[in-house]
């Protein structure tokens, strides 16, 4: 099977001669779940930001098939939650931005997913009133509703309790199965129980990406 996106000899970082991650060779196949572990400052977020096109690579390249689309679940701290918007507005905003004041709504399947994720009961709450965990779930679901082929998730489960983490992993898995998409998730959770949910697991060690599973 051909990968839908691949990093070739990728060097990422902020200063030209000082890459924080070197010679990264990694492929993403359709329908797989990948986890990336690594200590703070090892370049995990920089790698996915580069892969998404938010910053330039120092060298190397990223090759994707033309039909590929990306979405990014950022860390909660990177989002401006002072915005006067409800959870529903937040989830529908990307869709509204594509139309011109046309009414947009969730499909039945999406409503089911909202229910499963425990978002239905906070749908009309203001995002400024949501807890960190609730916001994290909202951001994950917003990305799922993009139906992007590859969704990058930057420490998405960090603010979630173990039960909610497992629920959200189940949501990701069922959504992936139904919609043929791939997930690339950054995490600090190295427990076997958590990592068992992924098809492949990588770790950053000494500026290199090493496959663990």
């Amino acid at each position: 099977m051909e990968p839908i996106s691949r990093a070739i000899e990728l060097n990422v970082g902020y200063r030209k001669n000082f890459p924080i991650l070197e010679n990264c060779n990694l492929e993403i196949y359709l329908g797989e779940m990948i986890a990336l572990l690594g200590p703070n400052g090892s370049g995990k977020s920089t790698l996915i930001r580069t892969w998404c096109g938010l910053q330039k690579q120092l060298s190397g390249k990223i090759v994707s098939i033309p039909e590929v689309s990306f979405s990014l679940v950022p860390q909660v701290k990177n989002i401006n939650f002072g915005f006067p918007m409800s959870v529903k507005d937040t989830l529908l905003l990307p869709r509204k931005a594509k139309t011109f004041f046309k009414k947009v709504k969730f499909t039945l399947k999406e409503e089911e997913l909202l229910e499963k994720s425990g978002i239905t009961n906070i749908l009309y709450n203001q995002i400024s009133q949501c807890s960190g965990g609730q916001l994290q779930k909202v951001l994950i679901v917003r990305s799922l509703f993009s139906y992007a082929k590859i969704i990058f998730l930057d420490e998405p489960m960090d603010a979630l309790d173990p039960t909610t983490t497992q629920t959200m992993l189940e949501v990701l898995k069922s959504f992936k199965k139904e919609n043929q998409m791939s997930f690339f998730l950054i995490t600090h959770n190295a427990s076997q129980e958590f990592l068992d949910n992924f098809d492949r697991v990588f770790e950053i060690q000494l500026k290199q990406i090493v496959q663990k599973k």
Binding site: I79, T90, S146
Partner: peptide, 22 residues
């Protein structure tokens, strides 16, 4: 008025706006 929703999306989450190729 025409760009309103895009401006709001961009202002709320500029990274995701760019990633999704708006």
């Amino acid at each position: 008025i025409f760009l309103y929703q895009k401006i709001i999306f961009f202002s709320f989450d500029p990274d995701e706006y760019k990633v999704r190729n708006y």
